[in-house]
C-alpha cells in the first residue's frame, strides 16, 4: 500500500455509494477488510482534508452496514426463498396454475358502488348547469392561443430591450467577478445573489462565458460537483454542459449560507 494514498479511500467511498444506489447485494462489500484499510491509513493522516475523507468513508461504510442489517432482517423476518428457485418454478407453471395459486391466496377488498338519490340530484343539477357542447366549443375557440416561440439575443437588440454595449458590460462584470473568486463551485457562484432573478441572469451570462471559452466548467464525478474556472485565453476550447437551476435549490442554498454565517 502506498503511503498516504487517498485512492483506496476514494474507491471505497465510490463502491459504498454504488452499493446504496444500485441493486447490489450489500454483502459484496467486505466491511472488515475496508475497516482495516481505514485503520492502516489513519496513522498517516495529517491534514484536515485527510481526516474529512476518512470521516466520509466511515459514514458511507455505516450506510452499507445498515443495508446489510436490513438484508438480514428481511430474510429472517419473512419466508426467505431463493429467488432463482421461485423464478424457475414460475417459468415452469402454466398460467392456469398461477391464477389458481393466486386465487387461493387472495382476499379481495369489498367495495360497492351505489347511486343514492342525493347523488342523482347532484347529477341532474350538473346537467342543468352545463352549456350545450357547441356553445362550450365556441368559448374554447374564442380563447386566444399564445404562440410558443424563442427569443434570440439579436431579437432583444433589435427590440431595443438590450443593447450590445449593455450586454457586453454585464458579461465583463460576471467575468471579472469570476476572475476575482478563481475556481469555485458552479452553484456557489451562480446562487450567490440577493434575488433568484439575478441568479438566472448570472447563469445566462455565465453560459456565454463558457461557450465563448472565457470560462471552463469542470465536473468532479466522485464529488458530483461542478466547478467553474476563469480562462485567460480567449477562444480556447469550449464545451456545452447542461446545468439545471431552480428556485427551490436557490432557496436551499441561501438558507444554508445564512446558517453557515450564523454558526460562525
Amino acid at each position: 500500500m502506498k503511503p498516504r494514498d487517498p485512492d483506496d479511500l476514494l474507491r471505497l467511498i465510490q463502491f459504498c455509494k454504488t452499493v446504496q444506489s444500485a441493486d447490489i447485494d450489500p454483502f459484496d462489500l467486505d466491511v472488515k477488510k475496508s475497516l482495516s484499510i481505514l485503520k492502516e491509513h489513519i496513522k498517516r493522516w495529517k491534514s484536515i482534508d485527510d481526516l474529512l475523507l476518512d470521516g466520509e468513508a466511515i459514514s458511507e461504510l455505516t450506510r452499507v452496514i445498515e443495508l446489510q442489517c436490513k438484508w438480514i432482517r428481511d430474510r429472517a423476518a419473512s419466508f426467505y426463498i431463493d429467488p432463482a428457485l421461485i423464478e424457475l418454478k414460475l417459468r415452469l407453471m402454466e398460467p392456469v396454475q398461477l391464477a389458481s395459486a393466486f386465487l387461493k391466496a387472495w382476499h379481495p377488498i369489498l367495495a360497492l358502488d351505489r347511486l343514492t338519490p342525493e347523488r342523482l340530484k347532484q347529477g341532474i343539477d350538473y346537467w342543468n348547469a352545463l352549456l350545450p357542447l357547441n356553445e362550450r366549443m365556441r368559448d374554447l375557440e374564442a380563447e386566444p392561443v399564445p404562440e410558443v416561440g424563442t427569443i434570440e439575443l439579436d431579437d432583444l437588440f433589435s427590440l431595443r430591450i438590450l443593447t450590445q454595449t449593455e450586454f457586453q458590460e454585464q458579461l465583463v462584470k460576471v467575468q471579472n467577478e469570476l476572475e476575482m473568486r478563481g475556481r469555485i463551485e458552479y452553484y456557489d457562484f451562480i446562487y450567490d445573489t440577493d434575488k433568484f432573478e439575478d441568479s438566472v441572469r448570472k447563469a445566462y451570462l455565465t453560459s456565454y462565458l463558457v461557450s465563448e471559452g472565457r470560462a471552463e466548467l469542470d465536473i468532479e464525478p466522485l464529488e458530483e460537483k461542478i466547478f467553474i474556472t476563469p480562462r485567460q485565453r480567449d477562444g480556447a476550447a469550449n464545451r456545452s454542459v447542461p446545468v439545471a437551476i431552480s428556485y427551490e435549490d436557490w432557496l436551499e442554498w441561501t438558507r444554508k449560507k445564512r446558517q453557515g454565517r450564523n454558526e460562525k
Binding site: 414460475l90 391464477a99 393466486f102
Partner: peptide, 30 residues
Amino acid sequence: FVVVLKEQLTEKASGLRIDEVAILSATLAY
C-alpha cells in the same frame, strides 16, 4: 381501513381474465 374477504374465495369474484390473474400472480411472486 378496508373490508376484505377473510375466507378463501370459493367462486369467481372478479372480472379479471385468467391470463391477467396469471400475470399478476407471477409478477407478485417474482
